[in-house]
Design a protein around this nucleic acid. Structure first.
Lengths: 207, 207, 207, 207
DNA sequence: ATGTAAGCGAGACGGTACGTCAGGTCTTGTA
DNA sequence: TACAAGACCTGACGTACCGTCTCGCTTACAT
């Protein structure tokens, strides 16, 4: 694996009148590396072009602006690999999931990518809309599923709003991320406990 | 009130070798108006200069970069006028406070200012540090005070982390703000309820 | 001819990854016009940008600073069109040449360009070096050639330094130019006479 | 002598409603040192203020702009000390004088001051006028006197223009100065010889 | 077998904002 | 009223990045 081999002198050949998937791959790879190594402020399209040995039109043919590219980098970055914990306990599941997310964010610097995405999106109303309507709901899906399993078990108080609980946990995570203030195990535990105690039935809470 | 009288042809006189507070005032006023009217993407230093009838050096003499200026605009913007509610009920106090905050954010577009600040801060590590260590704690103070009054009343479960409760409410607000998705009364009520139920004693919760 | 048609709304098309000579041409044209119309003190890069419908990076991509640009304007400005006089008389040739130079300088305001170049060069050691090693020798070439033809005719006293004679005539011209004190026919005649009498053989002088 | 003692912590006290000559002196001293040490590009009013422990208004009260200040520095710089040679030979006098001038220019870097003055003058029509009508004629006086002594001896051909001869020698010197190309003994000798042979009677020339 | 159409690397281009710097004017408080 | 101090406005500077454009090349696919 030549990740980090920079610059990669692998000359990609044209495939004619069809997009070369290798280009897309190289661009995302390069973009991710730059975000990891230089952070948002060092992330320029020209830097991506240079590192990927690609060109601006090739980038803009696929993503409509910097923001879309960053989002693609984030989504390629392996969130999918986060597995849904299922211990039978809502609290344990949430702690386990958030711990995994923060580990991923900090170890691979995917957190930097996410921060960059949220930041960049602010420059473009269409991207804010995408953030609101697509990106955040997609990110919420696993958390929602965890809560819904608890609901099926009858652990959730009637009248509680699961979406709000999800949003509380995502919100605190995002705020800490934007402030470059990673959540540690204790932070996660505290946050989860409040939310769980706030949304669960007596029985579950005491378990 | 001449807010909006643009450009104000009020010639500020020099005060000699001492900074003229009127300049600072005019700059903050102009910066605030631009953020309100044009949003972050229309906010340039030159635009501030033009509207305030000031100059770049005068701005950079006081604030080290755009980010610091935006922060000053936000802090001047009247958060101080938010009064601390005190109904005797934690839940009502929180709802009341958050409702006031969101009303302020949306009506005066202070929300736009805050979004701009958080965005701009990402370009400069020193500003992120300031966001983390000064700005957010300062913003948290009123919420903390509300919780602490409840604690004095004995309403908070022992072992609960008040700071985390505060962070949950600030986090969800920030996330909704960054996504340009204002919280309405129901959203606020749902969020507050979960946090209150999660942190309060049985007695208080049932009250 | 649309010189002076300002701004020319001729949209220059890109030539792909190669510099468009039309841009260079438009920039030099605009720069020359500004120097003619506004003089050195009105000559700013932004003014050139506006008039040439170009951009700062495009200018700085070609010339490393204002000084180089001004030099290019001067060299493009038609000195080449000065023809070498050849009457068989050194004195007549020199008078004729210098008269042509001063006419060019004053009528087209190329003199303003030259003054600006010499002035601007003083801000940058590299430009002074260029002035000394390239620009002045290039300017000296025609005068040298005139003297050398006289030398071939045997009109120059042995032991005389032709280069110094050239420098005397260029020097007085430059000084008068920098003092905004154009040389008239009499001035030129006087200067040429001294130099010719100082460098020529008796025979030639009396001819 | 504290020239170079920088910064001089000699606190000049105000003399009340009268100009303190020590200030003028300190300013000229500081300005001269900066031109010597940093050259024209490092010469700013603020630098003079700092080194002279003075202030901008004090400078602008005496000189109407940077250019006037530089001229004052040049004139204070000791040209007066150049003594008029009088050997009885025009050629020897001229060589001796020009040699002294160039020695002064290069050793004390008064040349830098003169270059700066000519450069700065180009930014201001009034200064160019002063250069033309006052400064250059003043500089020409000694050279003129040398020629006039020769004329009294009957060495100058009738019909020759002494002013032009002076201008030729000043012009070549200025050109070489602006090009940062000091004239050495041979250069001076060559130039003087041409001018002398061009302007003198047979008898003198052969002497 | 060949012409068309699209992807590709390259990099110039116009545009816009940045943050710095210098000039020259102004007003203070002190002597 | 001169002086040191330094804030102020003006406006140019040179740099950086964005997103668009056209080039010349290469290849796949339709004819």
């Amino acid at each position: 694996m030549n990740s980090g081999a920079f610059p990669q002198k692998v000359r990609r050949v044209s495939l004619g009148a069809v997009r070369n998937p290798a280009s897309e791959e190289a661009i995302l790879q390069a973009a991710g590396e730059i975000l990891e190594e230089e952070g948002y402020s060092g992330f320029t399209i020209q830097a991506v072009v240079s590192r990927a040995q690609s060109s601006k039109p090739t980038i803009y043919r696929r993503w409509r602006n910097k923001c879309s590219l960053i989002m693609a980098v984030y989504e390629r970055g392996g969130e999918a690999t986060l597995e849904m914990p299922d211990t039978g306990s809502l609290e344990e599941d949430l702690v386990s999931y958030l711990t995994a997310v923060w580990k991923w964010w900090t170890s691979s610097r995917a957190g930097e990518v996410l921060r960059s995405f949220v930041t960049e999106a602010q420059l473009d109303p269409a991207s804010v809309k995408e953030l609101r309507e697509d990106f955040i709901p997609r990110r919420a899906r696993l958390l929602r599923a965890i809560f819904q399993r608890a609901a099926l078990r009858g652990d959730i108080k009637s009248g509680s709003c699961v979406d709000t609980a999800v949003a509380l946990l995502m919100g605190i995570s995002l705020m800490r991320l934007m402030a470059d203030h990673a959540m540690n195990a204790g932070d996660i535990k505290n946050a989860v406990r409040i939310v769980v105690e706030g949304i669960c039935t007596e029985r579950e809470r005491n378990s």
